[in-house]
């Protein structure tokens, strides 16, 4: 029997961050409705901290959704999380930079600060009754001796699922398998794999992560996203449906892709 895997579509968040793309409210609501209708498990719908327009859009998506869980993306700061709460999403997703280049150069902070901020943000969202998932940004380049205790602390805080992000798309299939396998075995948390296509391996990397125990796979329609994009929704389903139960057929994914092209109307797609 094929094992069950769940698609988390991030077209409306990471996909939209593809430079040059800017969805308006109607487009986002339409795309979310379409993904909801076909039974995508979770839709990462946007970033409330972007402002009022984005928050209105997210509230509208929440009001119209029927089956999918709606999550919103946050940096690890309380202000972002306050914005998210105004949208009353199903899941508050908090991104935690975990590689040293991100911690020391981007944030100009240290590992202790990461532990503290993560705890502060998770507690703030959980106190208000939200389900929280974490995104370990740049996990593929992180030091495992830091990553594992951080995941264990997250688990103690009540976080059930962690996104393992290959932020710059440098993993190979075997490396991806090994990292995720070790992470799942050591921490016991549910893993969501998030791959990028910089070296053309987003799809095989996601499949290997799923083989290694990641139950959730991030995709974007048409593979849109920063640089060379993310794991392509349709391609992933085509490559993985023979070994996993994804609840969405390849035929459905092709239809979605076609409809999305018409909604997005972006000349470069």
């Amino acid at each position: 029997m094929k094992s069950q895997k769940f698609i988390i579509d991030t077209t409306l968040r990471d996909g939209e961050q593809s430079p040059g793309l800017a969805f308006n409210k109607e487009q986002k609501v339409l795309l979310a409705g379409m993904l909801d209708q076909i039974g995508v498990y979770q839709i990462e719908a946007g970033i409330p901290a972007l402002g009022k327009y984005e928050k209105n859009t997210l509230c509208e998506i929440m009001a119209q959704k029927k089956k999918s869980l709606i999550s919103v993306w946050n940096r690890a700061n309380l202000n972002d999380i306050k914005h998210s709460m105004e949208c009353n999403p199903d899941i508050i997703h908090i991104s935690i930079p975990v590689s040293y280049v991100q911690i020391y150069k981007k944030l100009n902070k240290n590992k202790t600060w990461i532990f503290k901020e993560m705890a502060k943000c998770v507690c703030a969202a959980k106190e208000q009754g939200y389900e929280v998932t974490l995104g370990f940004e740049d996990a593929s380049r992180a030091d495992v001796s830091f990553l594992m205790p951080l995941a264990l602390q997250a688990k103690e805080l009540g976080v059930k699922r962690i996104r393992f992000a290959d932020t710059v798309g440098v993993l190979t299939p075997t490396r991806c398998y090994e990292l995720v396998n070790e992470f799942v075995k050591y921490t016991g948390v549910e893993v969501e794999i998030h791959t990028h296509n910089d070296l053309g391996m987003a799809v095989p990397n996601a499949v290997q992560a799923a083989k290694a125990g990641a139950d959730y796979i991030d995709t974007t329609i048409l593979g849109i996203g920063e640089r060379a994009g993310n794991c392509d929704f349709q391609k992933l389903i085509y490559a993985a449906e023979r070994i996993f139960n994804l609840n969405i057929s390849h035929y459905t994914s092709l239809t979605v892709e076609e409809r999305a092209r018409r909604i997005i109307e972006y000349k470069k797609l």
């Binding site: 190979t172 299939p173 053309g200 391996m201 799809v203 095989p204 990397n205 490559a239």
Partner: peptide
């Protein structure tokens, strides 16, 4: 065919 040829070649 399964969008994995680069991964296969590299592996």
């Amino acid at each position: 065919r399964y969008y994995s040829a680069t991964g296969i070649a590299v592996e």
